[in-house]
Design a protein around this nucleic acid. Sequence first.
DNA 1: TCTCTCCTAAACAAGG
DNA 2: TCCTTGTTTAGGAGAG
Length: 336
Amino acid sequence: MEKDVPTLPSISPIQSPTNASKALSHSPSLPQPSATVLHQTAPSYSLCPVPLSGGLNTHCLSPSTPSDQDDLTCLSWLHQRNLLPLQHLPKMPTLPQLESLEPLPTPNLPLSPGKPPYSFSSLIFMAIEDSPDKRLPVKGIYEWIVNNFPYYRTAPSGWRNSVRHNLSLSKSFQRIQRDKSQSVGKGSLWCVCPEYRPTLQEVLKKTHYCHINNSSLLNSPVLLEAADYGQTLMGDTTVISDMDLNNPSMSSCSLIPDHEELVAIELTEEACEESEKDPLADSGYIEFHYYQDQQYQYLVLPGDTELDLETVEILQLDAEAQEAAGSLLDLAGGSH
DNA sequence: TCTCTCCTAAACAAGG
DNA sequence: TCCTTGTTTAGGAGAG
């Protein structure tokens, strides 16, 4: 299942003149920020862009609303939860409606969520890790899965049996007896067995990367290594996730990063070439990722968008995008 | 082919 | 009684 890893670039992509010229061609007036996500990609099928004025779209990755939760199969939210470092948005199985994308993404694309690529162990792991107390009752695990993976809303209920089966059978999960005095409802709480936590994280990472292997960007040893340590190695770029996936102490860390900035991921030439092979790449959108108001958000802009002040002004026309545009301006060295 | 992992289904018991 | 939870067994699919 592991993919061959491309040769490690001699220099980091962000420092490569060639790559930089490609990546920055979309934003000639934007000075290289210390941290800016700027990658060109076809919009993920799970995007539910909120239409902005000027044909721009913004999108919130926070699963705080049901509509947002639909997007969780896009897996980008894993970054928000710090279960995976923010990197290239994964390309999920192609949906026909995206094959024929018009120049602008259709707002509120109809979603037909497929089965998540994650094993039940991973789903349970994510559910538990996402809980404030790192422990959940079975019902809570059900709810988390349903809330985050729309597939299971309509799936036959047998998957619940599989969840329970996994909980019982897997050594990775421990049952905790509820405090009888405070117990409301039956059943126990389940938590992740600490010694199996790194294993679960590894499985989760592998699953994630296997399903985004269309992007050679993520196959860069640099980025993979960065993913392992929660830091990118691209110059002074700051990765948006500062957690250490292999650090058991992460369980006590906030799942939401406390810094607010854009994260830059630029396409390597290989990534660009591969992207060109992707039929969706013709739609050529750029996603601008940023972290704001304790949420990951991103703008989806047409690929030929020049992120200059004019573009930002357009962004500013929309109240919802105003703050985002401000962030871009800040990073561009301007003020608004 | 074998092994392993994972998924699914089913049966059963216990408890609310 | 019904439903949920937890356990166990069995079989199949897919990958290495």
